[in-house]
């Protein structure tokens, strides 16, 4: 046993699950979260008359209900609500900003229903329309919709993933993240507004950053043999930004540890940092930990201190993580394979 490997045993022995959850991470899409919604509502109130606002809120609410039903897999009821609200929208003049504001909710919702019905091409086309639809509104002062446009990039990514086009999906995530973190304009669509991006509060940028990152990490767990390629497609070179929130700092640290693993130059350094990360980080980042655990099992196998006992300790730790079962299972299956190999 090499003495410089011993710290690993100690670290694994002391591994403790950090239950703490700061609760900053939005469940579901950020676009339905409070910061975004409140800012948008405020902007709308200044823009339309009271009576128009009633109609707009009604229609948005109805599209939202249709979305909820689609998410519950009640596709007929979703379609029914959609037909009801489309009939109302048809009464509006399509050449007005009010119509475009209605479409802010309408287009992504319709795209989602198409996606649930496996009409991917049509769904993608509507998502691009949604990105374009926001341009004029942003020019009119609805700066917050820049994040709505980024949300549509995420939705396009989901479409790709659903069709098994993993690299294409990862590349969309990469464009969105580089835009958020480095203000590099996405190649997809046009008229991206850095000024609007900057106008939103840091908390929104941070939440969007996390939403865009955490979901693909869960997906990549199911393609672990391709992980390096997928990681690079989605997250390469994302270690050069200045974190503005504690969540961003955690993400930065995770990107750095992952890069260390894929570089495969210093196994022990990777293990040291990864084990520290998984024992110190709060439970809202459990998916990041699960992703590292798969890598830890590979790295551990390469050390002189590898024993089944320590391997099993890692597995026991994983079982405590608050992540969807399907992710946990696929990761633990991989870890067991490493153990048997």
């Amino acid at each position: 046993m090499q003495s410089n490997d011993l710290f690993i045993l100690e670290a694994i022995d002391n591994l403790q699950y950090n239950q703490q959850n700061n609760g900053n991470i939005a469940r579901g899409d950020l676009i339905h979260g409070n910061v975004y919604g409140e800012i948008l509502d405020g902007l709308v109130k200044d823009y339309v008359s009271n009576m128009e606002l009633r109609g707009l809120n009604y229609i948005w609410g109805k599209y939202d209900k249709a979305l909820t039903e689609a998410r519950r897999n009640n596709l007929e009821q979703s379609q029914q609500l959609l037909s009801e609200v489309e009939a109302i929208q048809a009464e509006y003049d399509p050449n007005t900003p009010l119509y475009a504001l209605i479409n802010v909710a309408a287009l992504p919702m319709k795209a989602y229903l198409l996606y649930r019905n496996s009409a991917f091409k049509e769904a993608e086309s509507l998502l691009f329309q949604a990105i374009e639809n926001d341009i004029a509104l942003i020019k009119d002062g609805f700066y917050i919709l820049e994040y709505h446009r980024i949300q549509q990039l995420h939705n396009i990514n989901r479409l790709h993933f659903k069709q098994g086009k993993l690299l294409e999906g990862a590349s969309v995530i990469h464009q969105a993240l580089r835009y958020i973190l480095y203000e590099h304009l996405p190649a997809m669509s046009s008229d991206w507004s850095i000024k609007s991006l900057q106008q939103a509060p840091d908390s929104l940028r941070s939440a969007m950053f996390l939403q865009l990152s955490l979901e693909p990490i869960g997906v990549f767990l199911h393609h672990i043999l391709q992980e390096k390629e997928l990681f690079n497609a989605a997250f390469a070179n994302l270690t050069f930004f200045e974190p503005r929130t504690s969540d961003e700092a955690v993400m930065l640290q995770w990107f750095e540890i992952k890069e260390l693993f894929f570089k495969a130059e210093d196994n022990n350094q990777f293990l040291k940092e990864a084990i520290e990360f998984i024992s110190k980080t709060g439970s809202e980042f459990d998916i990041l930990k699960l992703s590292l655990i798969a890598n830890i099992s590979d790295a551990l196998k390469k050390t002189s201190v590898y024993t089944i006992e320590y391997h099993q300790k890692i597995v026991a730790f994983s079982s405590q993580l608050k992540v969807p079962d399907r992710h946990k299972q696929v990761c633990l299956t991989y870890v067991s394979r490493v153990l048997e190999s």
């Binding site: 897999n73 009640n74 596709l75 007929e76 009821q77 379609q79 029914q80």
Partner: peptide, 8 residues
């Protein structure tokens, strides 16, 4: 709506 509910 009733018919959609039945279908779903």
């Amino acid at each position: 709506r009733n018919q959609a509910k039945i279908k779903d």
